[in-house]
């Protein structure tokens, strides 16, 4: 619990630093103030990919080890990943409306494939909620979590695979396509969002643990009534 709080504080400070750099870094000549959205959009999508990768890993580990901790990690990671995917989609649509003149553009396969990925993991969460038995839930969602990740590379490489309006990667091994001050702001936000992901996932794991403890403590209604022992019944 204490570690989670410390993580939350560190994440909050980093997000603050990221936001400061976002609003003080220079803007693009053509896109103007809307350039700044990239500092939320790109890190959100990075965290979503990370979260779904962690889910796949945790799912495989659950199938090998069969310990609750891996199931809790997979569930927490998917929930966090879905939130960040929604954030990435929303910020992308706001930017698209401002720059392309359309919130949703079918000429951008990254957008469509991200929406598809979002629904894959909504399906994962729906499956979890449909199964009351914790062991069966862990088994089935581990299988789906391990399979669903095949979607992630398709989303990531969609901008390279298809004719697309979406720009390709801005930071590449051969150098960045933007000024250093913008790169620094972007990298700080990447780190801040990653820390936020870790903090949120840790917090969600704590909630899952508390839920499990509560479920274990709950006495079924019928258990409160016990039949009288024969020795306690007086002869009539």
């Amino acid at each position: 619990m204490r570690i989670t709080r410390i993580l939350m504080v560190i994440a909050a400070i980093s997000i603050g630093a990221g936001l400061y750099l976002t609003f003080t870094s220079p803007t693009d000549r053509l896109q103007g103030e809307f350039t700044r959205i990239v500092n939320i959009h790109a890190p959100s999508m990075w965290v979503a990919f990370l979260a779904f990768g962690v889910t796949a890993l945790a799912s495989i580990m659950w199938l090998i080890r069969r310990t609750n901790a891996w199931d809790r990690l997979a569930e927490a990671s998917v929930e966090t990943g879905v939130i960040f995917t929604a954030t990435g989609l929303f910020t992308g649509m706001v930017w698209g409306q401002a720059v392309w003149g359309r919130a949703w553009d079918w000429a951008d396969p990254r957008m469509a494939s991200t929406a598809v990925m979002f629904f894959v993991y909504i399906g994962y969460l729906a499956l979890r909620r449909a199964i009351p038995d914790p062991i069966m839930r862990a088994r089935r969602s581990a299988i789906l979590g391990a399979i669903a990740v095949i979607q992630v590379p398709l989303v990531y490489f969609s901008v390279n695979l298809f004719r697309s309006l979406h720009q390709t990667q801005s930071i590449r091994p051969d150098g960045a396509t933007m000024p250093d001050s913008m790169v620094i702001a972007l990298l700080v936000n990447f780190a801040a969002f990653t820390l936020l992901y870790v903090a949120l996932t840790a917090a969600r794991i704590q909630v899952a643990k508390a839920e499990e403890e509560q479920a274990a403590d709950t006495v079924p209604a019928g258990d409160a009534v016990t039949p009288p022992l024969l020795s306690e019944v007086e002869d009539v």
């Binding site: 598809v116 990925m117 789906l144 979607q151 398709l154």
Partner: peptide
């Protein structure tokens, strides 16, 4: 719900 999005490729 599970198959439809995964069938996109």
């Amino acid at each position: 719900l599970i198959v439809a999005p995964l069938a996109i490729p």
